[in-house]
Design a protein around this nucleic acid. Structure first.
Lengths: 166, 166
DNA sequence: TGGGAAAACATGGTATCGCATGGGAACAGA
DNA sequence: TCTGTTCCCATGCGATACCATGTTTTCCCA
């Protein structure tokens, strides 16, 4: 299971190319190169302070989400409909080149206010891509909301695989 | 398992030909070329704002749906009857030419209000074909219904396969 | 522990290929 | 013969594969 960690600020060249952090690339690679999906954020009415960003994840995570929604709600449910439209329907497929870079389409750059550099922010099973400024904004908004307190979590031993992979 | 993603606006020429997005074609190809099925939408009484569109899917997905309905309800059930009549009975088989294009019959173009360009909207296991205007309409209707909130999903690790294949 | 070599990474530029799109010729049915 | 359909070829733009370079990190050996 992929685990995206930390934040990495990389340059965006004039063609919109960005290096995907090497540690992320490992989780996004399969037999036919590395690739992932970028989904533009929606303005969330519950979090009006959140700046726009891109949500990145691998195809494995995407499949898992589809299966989870299909199993939980059923494929003719309203939830499945809206989920697929807002997630799969908004997704942009990005493929790395031989050097581990992707090109961010202009529409995505515009959406996330990214000009000359982008932050890859690892959030476990997924990651965000945002401008350095919006990275600070979003983190500040979260700190303001939570007061720095993390929600409590019940970690069930059966779910975690044994062994510590890098 | 196929995964149709994103939206792709392609031109329809005066013969009714449209390029099927290359990323879709990969999921629709078998030994005898690429082909899929287009099913005109029905007006949904629960969603009166939804404009007409075409529902596209590969033959694998059709098989899976038939098996699911047959297994859930039985092939002499009312549900199986109506499902087959409204799904298989309304299906139009479309085959790509050597350049990856299909011809949309006039009846389908009329149904979906498609004139000079069509949007292929990937929704995971299937996709929609609609006019750019109706694409916007349907997305707006979904955003209005959900308020921009995606349904929450509990992704259980056991469901996700290891590896990220596209 | 420290220094040097080698690999990996981020970044820039260029060339080649594939895709979307147009038009026309061969073909079949009416 | 005429109409509508299927195949084949041409083309421009954009994507992507390839190459080159400097910098940083890692590794190995003294």
């Amino acid at each position: 299971m992929p685990l995206f960690l930390g934040n990495h600020n990389n340059k965006v060249d004039r063609k919109g190319r960005v290096s995907v952090p090497a540690s992320f690339r490992k989780h996004l690679s399969s037999d036919d190169g590395c690739g992932f999906v970028a989904i533009p954020s929606f303005p969330d009415p519950d979090q009006p302070d959140d700046p726009p960003y891109l949500e990145g994840m691998g195809y494995g995570q995407l499949h898992a989400m589809q299966e989870a929604v299909a199993a939980s709600y059923g494929i003719y449910s309203e939830e499945y409909q809206s989920f697929t439209e807002l997630t799969f329907g908004m997704a942009n497929e990005l493929a790395c080149d031989a050097d581990g870079r992707v090109v961010l389409p202009q529409a995505l750059l515009d959406h996330a206010d990214i000009s000359d550099s982008a932050v890859f922010w690892g959030l476990g099973s997924k990651f965000l891509i945002l401008s350095p400024r919006n990275h600070q904004k979003k983190l500040a908004a979260t700190l303001r909301r939570t007061g720095g307190r993390k929600p409590n979590v019940l970690v069930r031993p059966t779910l975690s695989k044994t062994g510590d992979q890098p």
